[in-house]
């Protein structure tokens, strides 16, 4: 490997890369592997410390003085497109097809890429949740109400988060709205499985990826990150439970 002349610049790129990858929802294992792959190509020694809110990258070249670089993780939600693009980039760097400068430009480009439009995500989440309802033996009426409640709850959550409302409050309100809307099967006596509709109405709020990442981090010895992500996932799950409870209580008490 030819390596790089400016180890600090390469280290700064790796710090930004690792925080970008983790912020997009990648596991610590993938982040470590990708980063070490690129560091090997750059010809630098790298030690990565991943913490819940930021990354520390220690860079050293040819047994010279080391530099410690920090990068903060930003919260932009899970983005699999960005994870795929950044992973491909790491292979290109490892193959020597990208220099540090080119990789920096590509990383900025990947980070600036917009996500899918909200209405497509809301529609897809609705279809996915209605399919869950069908898996739990819900009938067509239940599926229709689950689709409706998912789209409404998802859209409400997005609107509230865009208006800088606390995520936990947004999840509680979205869960409550979804539970009330899914209760339409009960209220209008439509279909034979209204209970399945109510049970499936808040499934789209379950933080599946944080739970999986927490388990993966735990299995690979990143206990601090695993505990932090697990607590965050538990918090979200508790909020959706509170929302579902409030929705059912409002309808039952009236």
């Amino acid at each position: 490997m030819a390596g790089v002349d400016n180890a600090e610049r390469a280290g700064r790129f790796l710090a930004l890369y690792s925080s970008g990858l983790l912020s997009s929802g990648a596991t610590t294992l993938r982040t470590e592997r990708n980063m070490l792959r690129m560091a090997d190509s750059f010809g630098i020694d790298v030690q990565l410390t991943i913490l819940p809110m930021h990354c520390e990258v220690s860079v050293r070249k040819d047994k010279g003085n080391g530099r410690l670089l920090f990068s903060e993780q930003y919260s932009r939600g899970i983005n699999f497109n960005a994870i795929t693009a950044m992973s491909r980039m790491s292979w290109k760097v490892a193959d020597g097809r990208l220099t540090v400068e080119q990789a920096e430009r590509l990383l900025s480009f990947v980070k600036a890429q917009s996500r899918y439009p909200d209405w497509i995500v809301a529609f897809a989440a609705g279809v996915a949740n209605a399919s869950f309802c069908r898996l739990f033996c819900g009938d067509l009426w239940a599926m229709a109400f689950v689709f409706l409640c998912t789209v409404m709850g998802f859209w409400l959550k997005r609107c509230l988060i865009h208006r800088s409302v606390d995520v936990r409050i947004a999840v509680i309100l979205a869960g409550m709205v979804s539970a009330i809307t899914a209760s339409g099967c009960y209220i209008f006596s439509l279909g034979a499985t209204p209970d399945v509709a109510v049970a499936a109405s808040v499934l789209y709020l379950v933080p599946g990826i944080p739970f999986i990442n927490a388990f993966s981090n735990f299995m690979h010895g990143h206990y601090v990150c695993a505990a932090a992500i697990f607590m965050h996932a538990i918090e979200t799950t508790a909020c959706l439970g509170i929302g579902l409870f409030c929705g059912v209580m409002i309808l039952n008490n009236l």
């Binding site: 409404m152 859209w155 409400l156 609107c159 509230l160 709205v177 009330i180 809307t181 209760s183 339409g184 009960y186 209220i187 209008f188 409002i250 309808l251 009236l254």
Partner: peptide
């Protein structure tokens, strides 16, 4: 219950 259901839908649509 119908009133709450309709109010919920209308308020979410308005938001």
């Amino acid at each position: 219950q119908v009133l709450i259901f309709l109010l919920t839908i209308v308020s979410v649509v308005l938001v």
